[in-house]
Design a binder for these strands. Structure first.
Lengths: 241, 241
DNA sequence: TGACCGGTTTGATATATGTCAAAATTCATG
DNA sequence: CATGAATTTTGACATATATCAAACCGGTCA
């Protein structure tokens, strides 16, 4: 688990951040979007295992993931680490920290990644001037709440295979949102990380994958996954999500 | 499960809402607080089983719970209902709905209750003028995210007794925040509801209560609970939370 | 007071998942 | 292409929780 912080670049006008397409795709005029770009910085060069931030770091910014993906995790006092989320290209990370001014989890790159840093003070100030930005910020935060509550439902009421089906469909949907193939993709995380996220042991995850394979629901070889029978997967999950 | 909607009262100046003490205790001057009171309505007369809102209702407002307590729950397609949270006096409810404009769960009174309605559009508009209100709103939303992630950790990595210990300590802490006895209280919810929330069956919850009793960690008779050995309870949970 | 009725506790057993261990596969590296 | 490390799969067994069933409260209402 490396700790290097990667290269850092700042531009007064950071059109590279492409926030428009990525994370804030609503209701802003070109001029307004320009003002969001103006307060953001591009940060690149995160390699697998690099930290974007750590638990207890002072909260400064939200980050829009421009390339790559991250996981968030907490370290329990006994050394175990538990994954609390996977964040992919185009999503926002860092929302955990606003209420305490300090981060409550670690954010670790799962592959070569780039982010767009959004200093929260400036974002708040700007959102006082731009109601549609304000509303969008609220939606992003609320979406995170809904997402977390969805996982609570998953953990609270579903068995191993149902959890894995929900996980795969969720990934699929997020890939589709980025215009990528929703039925054929490479997992960026290990069985162990999936298990940690789903509240299962890695062996249980592996067995569930094998069962799906045996029943023709998916094709899986190591981290390459192909979803074959979406209706069956949805049926496992029930209708929620 | 009743459906009556209860009485409703509106006041141009709703000083009864006492938002200052309840849910927004930070950084606002008396004049600023008055402006928050001005946009809020008192709604009273919710009886046990009454709905504050229902899943798919259009999102209009957040609610500060002035008296009593509510649970939030989702109905699965097969009829099972799962509790997603318990909200007590002084807390805010309704945050789930901002991102979709529609509520994602039911909110049901667990006892005789009153709320203060905060129309979200007006709250947003006011928070554009009052930075400290804006910041506080963000903190409330972020706190909900952190709270939900705490439950994810709980559901993902803890066994039945650890979950129950975490639940009891969480209740205790929230009671303390309201100046009530943190070691002796009446549960407002059934074993079934606790189990639904913690991802356990009611029998498992009951057995865990009995074990705690047998080991001198708590006294429990039906819904009356007394926490006897806080250190032992904390030890069960680990240090998180 | 007595008889209910929902909620709770307790018991016996089934089942899903965890645990431990080994084999098989994939991946990185020279 | 060969080697070894890491990850994944599979197997046998242990254990926590679910399930089903019955008994036991603790209130409410005649």
């Amino acid at each position: 688990m490396q700790q290097s912080v990667s290269s850092f670049r700042r531009k007064a006008v950071c059109s590279n951040c492409r926030l428009r397409e990525l994370c804030l795709p609503v209701g802003l005029s070109a001029g307004e979007m320009q003002r969001v770009d103006d307060i953001s910085h591009l940060k690149r060069g995160y390699a697998r295992g690099d930290y974007l931030y750590r638990s207890n770091d002072k909260f400064q910014s939200l980050y829009a993931i421009r390339k790559g993906s991250f996981k968030t995790q907490v370290l329990h006092e006994d050394g175990r680490e538990q994954v609390t989320g996977f964040q992919m290209t185009g999503e926002i990370i860092g929302l955990d920290a606003i209420c305490t001014d300090h981060h409550t989890c670690d954010a670790v790159a799962m592959e070569s990644s780039e982010v767009c840093e959004l200093p929260f003070n400036k974002l708040e100030a700007l959102s006082r001037e731009l109601p549609s930005l304000q509303r969008h910020l609220h939606k992003i935060m609320s979406r995170e709440i809904v997402r977390d509550q969805g996982i609570m439902l998953l953990l609270g009421s579903m068995r191993a295979e149902e959890r894995l089906a929900a996980f795969l469909l969720n990934l699929s949907q997020r890939l589709a949102a980025r215009g990528l193939s929703p039925t054929q993709f490479q997992l960026r995380m290990s069985r162990q990380e999936i298990g940690s996220y789903l509240g299962l042991k890695l062996e249980t995850v592996s067995r569930a994958f094998s069962n799906f394979q045996d029943n023709g629901l998916i094709n899986v070889r190591a981290r390459a996954v192909e979803l074959l029978d979406l209706p069956a997967l949805h049926a496992l999950v029930g209708k929620q999500q």
